[in-house]
């Protein structure tokens, strides 16, 4: 289970990240920049499942919290990602309350520039499914499923850590993630039974 992070991110990546994290906590700005650049895109990816197009803004707020509390953080790379995800989640929920909107009412696919034009062939559409729209597909799942899948897959957290972030029982998170995958699988299917390319 713990191997999950090692496979998607690579063991050496994880080691380098842990080193950068330690340096950042000691006040090394260049190291912190590396930490930021590594984690932020994934954090934004997770936040898209919560706040849609406001993900970047909420991530920015999150990092201001992270910066202030970094001295209190103890743990390794995965723990750090879980920690930032928790802060991000709280920020996102605050954001939703503040703006008094239903979660993710904004248009999610802001990668429209990358998407094929309407008249393009299904071939292109299928290709785009495997690239530009993958994250959007997950982000558009029902929120509990989206969160579970994004935490597990995009932030590379193992099941207990994802459950920790969500404040739920690991079993519930596992179920949500499985449902999310099933739904993704359904949506991937093409009329002729063709799979995503």
């Amino acid at each position: 289970m713990g191997r999950a992070q090692g496979t998607r991110r690579g063991a050496t990546d994880e080691t380098a990240f842990a080193a950068a994290l330690a340096q950042a906590r000691a006040g090394d700005e260049a190291a912190f920049a590396r930490v930021y650049r590594t984690v932020n895109p994934r954090l934004v990816g997770y936040l898209r499942g919560l706040v849609g197009n406001d993900a970047d803004d909420v991530a920015s707020e999150t990092w201001h919290d992270v910066v202030r509390a970094l001295g209190d953080f103890r743990g390794d790379g995965p723990a750090f990602r879980a920690w930032t995800a928790t802060i991000a989640r709280n920020r996102a929920l605050d954001h939703l309350r503040r703006s008094n909107v239903r979660p993710r009412t904004t248009e999610l696919v802001d990668t429209a520039k990358d998407s094929p034009a309407d008249q393009d062939s299904e071939r292109l559409a299928l290709e785009s499914l495997s690239t530009a729209h993958a994250l959007s597909l997950i982000a558009e799942l029902p929120r509990d499923q989206a969160e579970a899948v994004l935490l597990r897959v995009v932030l590379g957290l193992d099941a207990p850590m994802a459950a920790q972030v969500l404040g739920k029982q690991p079993g519930a998170v596992r179920t949500a993630a499985h449902r999310g995958l099933k739904r993704l699988a359904e949506r991937m299917r093409r009329p002729g039974g063709t799979e995503e390319k």
Binding site: R8, A33, Y36, R37, N40, P41, R42, V44, G45, D56, A59, S60, T111, L129, S130, T131, A132, A134, L135, L137, I138, V149, L150, V153, V154, L181, L184, A185, M188, E196
Partner: peptide, 22 residues
């Protein structure tokens, strides 16, 4: 499905935040 999930990770990584925010 595995490819889809891997693509999601790649997609996230391919969108670095704005310079100004950083």
């Amino acid at each position: 499905l595995a490819r889809l999930l891997a693509s999601a990770v790649e997609e996230a990584d391919s969108r670095p935040g704005s310079r100004n925010t950083e």
